[in-house]
Simulated scan of single mutants.
Amino acid sequence: MGYEGSDVYNNDVFFERYMKRRHRKESPNACMEEPVFIELLGDITGKRIVDLGCGDAMFGKQLLADGCTSYVGVEGSHKMVEKACHVLQDYLGTVHLSSIEDYLFPSESYDIVVSRMALHYIEDLRKVFEKIHHTLVDGGSFVFSVMHPIITSSFKSYEQSGRRQDWIVDDYFWSGKRVEVWMEQEVVKYHRTMENYFSLLQECGFTIEQLREPMPQKEWFEDIEEYNRRMRIPLMVVFRCRK
């Protein structure tokens, strides 16, 4: 059946393995997705930010250090929330233990909504996009990243052992539930085409300002073989939208 939403992060073994993997130097999140995400975010000085699926809130710590007025993290894993509270203990940020779907989005309360690599866990993304639109002030920004549709449509070709070398895209136009074997656990994610994301955002009232497919930069990689491997296929996509 697979773990739904953020439940997999409450598995002790998975959590420890994930934290080591997430913060390694050549993590794709760190050396590919994050630089592009920060570029699209722009100047956050004085901004009120909510972070959906905030994980350990290390990004929230960075946002507060960079000058945002307030930071609210939303996270469904109690183990992640415990870690996030420790990370933010010396900062004026807060974290709510809640799934993204169940969070009570206050009306016109935030200048920026961010979400990094979390929304592909959501089945009813339309409802979440509508709530995000509701919680932003007029002119507010919504910046988010998700697994690239090429990745979410190639789980069948995954092999558990060794570095993945081939991505066979299949059932691309069948949107919906997919199960990925990730660090020896079955995890439920939701595949959508690029057109699905575009259409849904527009139908929920957003203007899409930029779309980026983070490309690896050679200077971030000590292992040239890993750099060459990452050049073969896009791993994630980042959207910048405005209300």
Results as ranks from 00 to 15, higher is better:
residue 2 G to H: 05
residue 3 Y to F: 07
residue 11 N to A: 02
residue 16 E to R: 08
residue 21 R to H: 07
residue 23 H to A: 03
residue 27 S to K: 03
residue 31 C to S: 01
residue 34 E to D: 03
residue 41 L to F: 10
residue 45 T to V: 15
residue 46 G to K: 15
residue 48 R to P: 12
residue 53 G to L: 04
residue 56 D to W: 02
residue 58 M to G: 08
residue 63 L to Q: 10
residue 74 V to W: 13
residue 79 K to Y: 11
residue 83 K to C: 12
residue 83 K to E: 13
residue 85 C to A: 10
residue 95 V to P: 00
residue 95 V to Q: 01
residue 99 S to F: 03
residue 99 S to H: 02
residue 101 E to W: 03
residue 103 Y to E: 00
residue 103 Y to W: 01
residue 110 Y to L: 07
residue 121 Y to L: 14
residue 122 I to V: 14
residue 124 D to C: 05
residue 126 R to T: 13
residue 129 F to M: 10
residue 130 E to A: 10
residue 136 L to G: 10
residue 141 S to N: 05
residue 142 F to V: 00
residue 147 M to V: 08
residue 147 M to F: 04
residue 151 I to K: 02
residue 151 I to V: 12
residue 157 S to D: 08
residue 161 S to R: 14
residue 174 W to T: 06
residue 175 S to E: 01
residue 178 R to F: 00
residue 179 V to C: 03
residue 179 V to S: 00
residue 180 E to D: 01
residue 183 M to P: 09
residue 184 E to A: 12
residue 185 Q to C: 09
residue 188 V to A: 12
residue 190 Y to A: 14
residue 191 H to Q: 15
residue 195 E to H: 13
residue 203 E to S: 10
residue 204 C to H: 06
residue 206 F to W: 02
residue 217 Q to M: 11
residue 228 N to H: 11
residue 233 I to Q: 06
residue 235 L to M: 11
residue 237 V to H: 07
residue 238 V to T: 07
residue 243 K to D: 00
